[in-house]
C-alpha cells in the first residue's frame, strides 16, 4: 500500500496545520494570558504518526485517544476554530466549553472522545471495536495512547480481549520515551532490557511492530496494513510508533493567579540532556517530510511555503474566532449532567 503524490501533499498540509495549531495554543499563554486554564498537552513532534495513521482509515471508522488529543480531530476534519474555542472555554467551542483541551469529541467525524486518565481510553476503544464488529459494516477503530499507558492494567486486559475476540482495532502506541518526566527505561522492564515495547504483543498472540513514527509514509503503510487485517476480521495489531514530543509534557501547573507557560522539555529540565533534545529538533518530522517531498519533486518550495502560510492564516482566524466567542452562561453548568 502506498500513497500517491496528492495524498502525500495532503498529509503534509495536515501535519503543518497540526503544528500551526499547537504553536498557537502555546503562544496563547504569552499573548493572551489567562485565556487557557488548566492543562494542555501538545502533539508537536507526533504529526507524522497521527496523519499517517488517520490517512489509513475511511469514513465510518472511529478513533479514540488520550488527553493529548488536538492532532486527531484536525486530521479527521474538525473545524479548528471550534477546537480552539473549546480550549479557550468558549460557548462556541467544539464541546461548548464543558471539556477543554483534554476532552475533545467529534462523533460525527468518528472521534468518539478521550480520557484524561492514562490508559483508560484503551478499553473504551476496544468496546467501540466490539460495537463495530457486531455492526458488521467493516468499520475499524484506531486506538491511540502513549508508552506510559502500556504499564496500565487496562492495556493488558484490553489487548487480551481484543485478540481473543478478533476485534477490528489497531492499537497505535506513540512511544515518545517519556511518561511526563520519567524516562521509559525507568519504568518499563522491556525498555530497561533494551527491547522495543512492541514486544508486549507477544503476550496476546498479536502482531507487534515498531516503526519510525517520524515518517508519515512508513506510518501510513504500517497502519494501513493493520487496518486491512482488522477489516478482514483477522484481529488487532500493536503498532509502536517512535516519536519525540517537541514540547514539555504540558504547560506549567500552578494555582490560579500564577501565569502559565510552557517549560522546556523534560530532557533538559529533568535530565540536563540538551544534546538529546537538540537532536530531536533536528529530526523534526515536519521539515523532514517537507524535505522529502521537495527533494522527491512532489512539492516545490513555493507551494510548501504557501501551505504553511495558509495554515498560519487558518489558525489566526481560529484564534480570532475563539477569542470572539462568548463565555458560556454560568447556569449552563447544570446542563448535560444526564442525557
Amino acid at each position: 500500500m502506498s500513497t500517491n503524490s496528492q495524498d502525500r501533499v495532503e498529509m503534509f498540509r495536515t501535519m503543518v496545520r497540526i503544528r500551526e495549531f499547537e504553536e498557537r495554543v502555546k503562544r496563547t499563554f504569552a499573548e493572551h494570558p489567562g485565556v487557557i486554564r488548566g492543562h494542555t498537552h501538545l502533539a508537536d513532534g507526533a504529526e507524522a504518526s497521527i496523519v499517517g495513521s488517520i490517512a489509513a482509515i475511511r469514513p465510518g471508522d472511529q478513533v479514540m485517544a488520550t488527553y493529548r488529543c488536538h492532532g486527531y480531530p484536525i486530521a479527521l476534519g474538525t473545524d479548528t476554530t471550534a477546537m480552539l474555542a473549546e480550549i479557550y472555554g468558549r460557548s462556541n467551542g467544539l464541546c461548548g466549553g464543558y471539556g477543554g483541551s483534554m476532552h475533545l469529541a467529534d462523533p460525527e467525524r468518528g472521534f468518539l472522545g478521550t480520557s484524561g486518565i492514562v490508559g483508560q481510553s484503551i478499553p473504551q476503544a476496544t468496546g467501540a471495536a466490539y460495537a463495530a464488529q457486531i455492526r458488521r459494516a467493516g468499520d475499524v477503530v484506531l486506538c491511540f495512547f502513549g508508552d506510559g499507558a502500556s504499564k496500565q492494567g487496562a492495556f493488558h486486559e484490553s489487548l487480551n480481549i481484543a485478540s481473543l475476540w478478533k476485534l477490528p482495532i489497531v492499537f497505535v502506541m506513540e512511544n515518545n520515551s517519556y511518561s511526563v518526566s520519567v524516562r521509559v527505561e525507568q519504568e518499563d522492564a522491556n525498555a530497561a532490557a533494551g527491547e522495543p515495547l512492541a514486544t508486549k504483543a507477544k503476550a496476546y498472540s498479536m502482531p507487534g511492530v515498531t516503526i519510525d513514527g517520524g515518517d508519515p509514509d512508513v506510518v501510513y503503510e504500517t497502519v494501513a496494513e493493520a487496518v486491512s487485517r482488522a477489516r478482514a476480521g483477522e484481529g488487532p495489531t500493536l503498532v509502536e510508533s517512535l516519536v519525540y514530543r517537541l514540547s514539555a509534557h504540558g504547560n506549567s501547573i500552578a494555582p490560579p493567579g500564577v501565569p502559565l507557560h510552557y517549560p522546556e522539555h523534560e530532557a533538559v529540565t529533568v535530565f540536563g540532556d540538551v544534546a538529546e533534545y537538540e537532536a530531536a529538533k533536528r529530526g523534526d518530522p515536519v521539515p523532514r517530510f517537507r524535505g522529502a517531498l521537495v527533494t522527491g519533486g512532489v512539492l516545490d518550495a513555493a507551494r510548501a511555503d504557501a501551505i504553511v502560510a495558509e495554515a498560519a492564516d487558518e489558525m489566526q482566524r481560529a484564534v480570532d474566532g475563539a477569542l470572539a466567542g462568548p463565555e458560556p452562561e454560568p447556569a449552563d453548568a447544570l446542563r448535560f449532567v444526564h442525557a
Binding site: K151, G153, H156
Partner: peptide
C-alpha cells in the same frame, strides 16, 4: 492472569 494488575506487577517486579 487476565487482570490488569498481573502485568502491572510483572513489569515492576522485573524492572
Amino acid at each position: 492472569v487476565q487482570a490488569g494488575l498481573f502485568t502491572e506487577s510483572v513489569n515492576l517486579a522485573t524492572l
